[in-house]
C-alpha cells in the first residue's frame, strides 16, 4: 500500500517559543522607539541624543524581527536574525560601559538579561532548524501507466529502460480497470545545492528521470520515442523543420 500522509510536524512547542520571542521583539521595539530615554536610564546608560537615536534604530530592528517571525513562525531564519540582534545589543552595552557616566549595576543586569534571551533565541533557532530538516523528503516518487500487461512491461523494461533502474527503486503493479501497468520509480532527492545547480544548468535530476520514464512508456506503447520539430534540439528551439533541404 502506498502512503502519502502528511508528516507530523512535532514543532508545536518550538513554534510557540518562536512566537513568544516575536512578541518580546514587539514589546522591546515599541519601548525603544516610544521611550528611548526611560529605557536608557533603565539599563544604566546616559540618555543623551546619540543614545536615544541608537535605541530608536534598535527598536525598528526589533519590529523587523517580529514581522519576520510572525510571517514564518516555523522557519529558523527569522529567529537567527534575533541572535544577530542580540550580538549587536551586547556590543552596544560593551561600548557603553567604557563611559564613566553609566550605572554599572544596572548595566550588568542588562547584559545578563540579553545573554538570557540569547540562550532562548539559540535554542529556538536550532530546534526549528532540526524540525525543518526532518520535514524534507529523502526520495521522490514518479509514476506512469503503460497500456500493456504487467508481464510484458516488466520484460520490456529490462530491454528499453537503460540505466533508469540504477537511478532508483522500480515497482510494477497492474492498473485497475484493465488499463495496463502502473510503473513507479522512486529516486533519491538531491541536496538543495545540487537541485538548484541542476535547475540552473537544465540538468534537473528529477525532471530528467521523469522524462526518461515517459520515453520508456513511448518505447513500450508506440515502439519509438516521439519527436516534435523542437524536441529534437537541446533546449528551446523554434517549432519549425530543421532538415536543410528544399523539396
Amino acid at each position: 500500500m502506498d502512503t502519502h500522509q502528511t508528516r507530523e510536524r512535532g514543532d508545536g512547542k518550538v513554534g510557540t517559543l518562536s512566537k513568544g520571542l516575536g512578541w518580546l521583539s514587539v514589546g522591546l521595539g515599541v519601548a525603544e522607539m516610544a521611550a528611548p530615554a526611560a529605557l536608557a536610564r533603565l539599563i544604566g546608560v546616559q540618555p543623551d541624543r546619540r543614545t536615544r537615536t541608537t535605541l530608536r534604530l534598535f527598536g525598528a530592528r526589533e519590529i523587523a524581527h517580529a514581522i519576520g517571525i510572525f510571517a514564518k513562525p516555523r522557519q529558523p531564519m527569522p529567529v537567527w536574525s534575533r541572535v544577530l540582534g542580540d550580538a549587536i545589543d551586547l556590543s552596544f552595552l560593551a561600548w557603553a560601559m567604557k563611559s564613566k557616566r553609566t550605572n554599572t549595576e544596572r548595566m550588568v543586569g542588562a547584559v545578563v538579561a540579553v545573554l538570557g534571551v540569547t540562550v532562548l533565541d539559540v535554542f529556538a533557532g536550532t530546534s526549528l532548524q532540526r524540525t525543518g530538516r526532518v520535514q524534507r523528503p529523502h526520495t521522490k516518487k514518479m509514476s506512469v501507466t503503460i497500456n500493456r500487461p504487467l508481464q510484458e512491461v516488466s520484460q520490456r523494461w529490462r530491454e528499453v529502460a537503460g540505466d533508469l533502474s540504477s537511478k532508483g527503486q522500480v515497482t510494477f503493479r497492474t492498473a485497475p480497470g484493465g488499463r495496463g501497468t502502473e510503473v513507479s520509480l522512486e529516486i533519491p532527492t538531491p541536496g538543495r545545492l545540487k537541485m538548484a545547480a541542476g535547475r540552473l544548468l537544465h540538468n534537473d535530476a528529477e525532471q530528467m528521470a521523469d522524462g526518461d520514464l515517459r520515453k520508456v512508456k513511448q518505447l513500450i506503447e508506440v515502439g519509438e520515442i516521439v519527436h516534435s520539430d523542437s524536441s529534437i534540439h537541446r533546449g528551446m528551439h523554434a517549432a519549425q523543420p530543421s532538415a536543410r533541404k528544399e523539396r
Binding site: 508506440v222 515502439g223 519509438e224 516521439v226 519527436h227 520539430d229 529534437i232 519549425q240 523543420p241 530543421s242 532538415a243 536543410r244 533541404k245 528544399e246 523539396r247
Partner: peptide, 11 residues
C-alpha cells in the same frame, strides 16, 4: 522561408 519537413518517426 524555412526548411522543408522531414520524416522523424516511422508513423
Amino acid at each position: 522561408r524555412v526548411p522543408d519537413p522531414a520524416i522523424l518517426n516511422s508513423r
